[in-house]
Design a protein around this nucleic acid. Structure first.
Lengths: 235, 235
DNA sequence: TTTGGAATGTTGTATATACATTACCAGTTA
DNA sequence: TAACTGGTAATGTATATACAACATTCCAAA
């Protein structure tokens, strides 16, 4: 094992065993260097990586301390629907249900940081996996940032792919809930009976402002989120 | 701006603008060092951090290349229910509905990697936020790894907190879906009408094997996942 | 008592260097 | 053609050093 990894392991165990509780000071770079007979740079790397992993917090001039474990959290990855499907080696195709320019509903105007009633671009697309509908993508786009959004052919590339080309992303916020689909959604998802659906609202922003707000609806039984391994996670 | 940050910015822009497409080679540490008149270690740091951020991939002996953007994904954080509630400065309390030792149903035995029919520990707990039920935690625990699971008082600390003390976690896998609650679940959640619920199945493993499998059910209208900012994310 | 400032310790950045490990290619050999 | 070999270049690890930036403590002066 590399030396820096040995030091990481040492500190890792102190924290894991509870010997060092939250906010307990961790030996300084210099002390660790001396203790393990390595250079300060090597000791530093161990602390640095532990800090990036969220196990310790570091403050210049003050020192290194065991991070509060309260903020334990698990991470989930949400991929694009098209990628997700291709990843499973399944066929993907899309049907454009709607493509229009409309005055923004109040909630959308607020989300896109536009004045109430301003015109926005609106698309509704159903995504199919092996011929079965698996997602309705209901998206409102800021026309100032993506003026030619409606002029694309979304059976060839997804809105996500087009938007990525046009405006680099800086941030996204998500919201997940379970809902019963409206009659309209049921039609788009080709559902005969109402079935609980998983709905993701995703708002994405670039450097120039909020780009778009998408509502992604999945039939409850056909959706999975990929789990992501982390050191700090929840039982 | 620090020198290593300048180099990161430079490469960042090349990728963002599309000038360097996927798999395009990135200048080597030595070339960057010469170009920017810095030491190799400084150039290295820039590439290292870009690699950690998932923007480039590095292979010893081969070089550094722009990472494929196809794997764009967003990250969501799932916290423990108790932390989540305290984070909102709300009151949390829990009611233990069930605490028993039972033969494992087949699906549970498989999930915990036990032989069919082996005894497992089972708990059902309802979590309340400001007096309203917000989550039913239905959990099966491996008795070999946590023999005293049933002897705890789960109105004082959550199973998550107890399990964290006993067995350090190494991995967790998640699965999210939307469901309609069973009659039993409706009772535990104090629901009068069936309402779509968000269900998370979480399987956690420690070094010695699978620790527990939990099914967390939230009423659809009362659950939120915190969004997590990343550089590479989805529209 | 309060304020100001120096001393000290800690982390952050940067450099120069050495050697180890791996990938790839070109040339050689069987 | 196929397999081996060595050279070159790239990343990975580690060391020693220097200075900058910041936090904390403590002491002296107002």
């Amino acid at each position: 094992m590399a030396k820096f990894a040995t030091i990481k392991e040492y500190i890792y165990k102190k924290i894991e065993s509870g010997e060092w509780p939250e906010y307990h000071p961790v030996s300084s770079e210099n002390v660790l260097a001396e203790t393990f007979s390595v250079s300060r740079m090597t000791a530093r790397r161990a602390l640095q990586e532990l800090s990036e992993e969220g196990l310790v917090t570091r403050t210049r001039g003050s020192g290194t301390f065991v991070a509060p474990l309260k903020s334990q959290s698990a991470l989930l990855t949400i991929r694009n629907i098209a990628d997700e499907i291709r990843l499973r080696n399944h066929r993907h195709h899309a049907v454009v249900q709607l493509l229009e320019r409309v005055p923004a509903p109040n909630s959308i105007a607020a989300a896109l940081q536009l004045t109430a009633g301003a015109e926005v671009l609106h698309s509704v697309i159903t995504h199919f996996e092996n011929g079965q509908p698996v997602q309705v993508e209901d998206r409102y786009v800021n026309p100032d940032l993506v003026p030619e959004y409606l002029e694309q052919n979304y059976t060839q590339c997804t809105p996500h792919e087009y938007l990525c080309e046009v405006t680099p992303l800086t941030e996204a916020s998500h919201l997940i809930e379970a809902v019963l689909p409206s009659a309209q959604l049921m039609k788009w998802l080709e559902l005969d009976e109402p079935e609980p659906c998983l709905q993701i609202q995703r708002r994405t922003s670039g450097r120039e402002g909020v780009v778009s707000q998408a509502t992604l609806t999945h039939p409850g039984s056909r959706f999975r989120l990929g789990g992501h391994m982390t050191f700090k996670t929840s039982h």
